[in-house]
Design a protein around this nucleic acid. Structure first.
Lengths: 148, 148
DNA sequence: CTTGATCCTCTAGCCACTTGAAGATGGATC
DNA sequence: GATCCATCTTCAAGTGGCTAGAGGATCAAG
């Protein structure tokens, strides 16, 4: 049985069906053929393509970059300079983020280890947040760092 | 002159005026009094509050957590257990993200250092993205990691 | 009095999805 | 063949944390 329903494809690649439909909508996954009752039918190639996308997303590549990378994967005769450049950019972005997070960890662990159990008026955590002064290494913009 | 326009407050705390209006809208900053011509007028306390918010955001605290922390800062007689808990959660989130990013960096730098200059058909970067197999340490969900 | 900076509100856009509504279809069970 | 529930379909809206733009009012300086 070389073809899959959207649900099968989803579980093969460990994503959710709506995500696949979304990737189709934004042009990362090609529109597959349909059954008589309009259900999507995927050929085995779709598994590899979806895995490629998922892997690239896990590595933090933005969708636009993935589009470029998929184009290259689809046209193996083209030069791959773009792929190298994108990977280098992504590596630089990851390294920048790593050093930012490292300084966040430093301050947070200082806050946590100074922990208190009295009233909030004497709370070290709140105090740390109020005084940015003693926090020398200014940890850049928060942008897309970490949500709890 | 103990009061500030929104622009002054913005530059004092190094945020943009729309951000302050946004914080007012979501209830992080209280609605200030207005001039006859409806312009916002901030008292000096607003500077500290905005700095607190900015600092917490830089540390990656989500807005909901900041609301809780501000409540504690506003009511110093309450117990500060929540603040400790939130800081610990945030520290844990940061540490998880750090280890994730470290493994991303490993794979990306492997991709980059294997770099190629031929056609995409032989591109190591594309190849790496296609084969998730040899990438043992599975780097979790991408969620809010890094955009380039 | 004119200029240009700043302010106001309101709406929409960003990213990469996720969630939900409302309904059609498919396969398994009675 | 009837019932049931899982799965599928489309479309719209929500998420977080802002940012950007439209269209207009007001202010301070020259």
């Amino acid at each position: 049985m070389p073809s899959h329903s959207i649900g099968e494809l989803a579980s093969l690649a460990d994503v959710k069906p709506p995500t696949i439909r979304f990737y189709e909508q934004i042009g990362l996954m090609p529109a597959p053929r349909r059954t008589a009752s309009d259900r999507r039918v995927y050929e085995p190639e779709a598994v590899a393509r979806l895995a490629f996308i998922k892997h690239a997303r896990q590595l933090g590549f933005p969708v636009d970059a993935i589009r470029t990378l998929l184009n290259l994967a689809d046209h193996p005769e083209q030069a791959c300079g773009d792929a190298n450049r994108l990977a280098q950019q992504q590596l630089a972005a990851v390294e920048e983020k790593l050093s930012l997070l490292a300084s966040l960890r430093t301050e947070l662990s200082r806050m946590v280890s100074a922990g208190c159990d009295g009233p909030a008026g004497e709370c070290r955590v709140i105090e740390s947040l109020s005084d940015h002064g003693h926090c020398l290494g200014d940890h850049g913009p928060a942008d897309s760092t970490v949500r709890s």
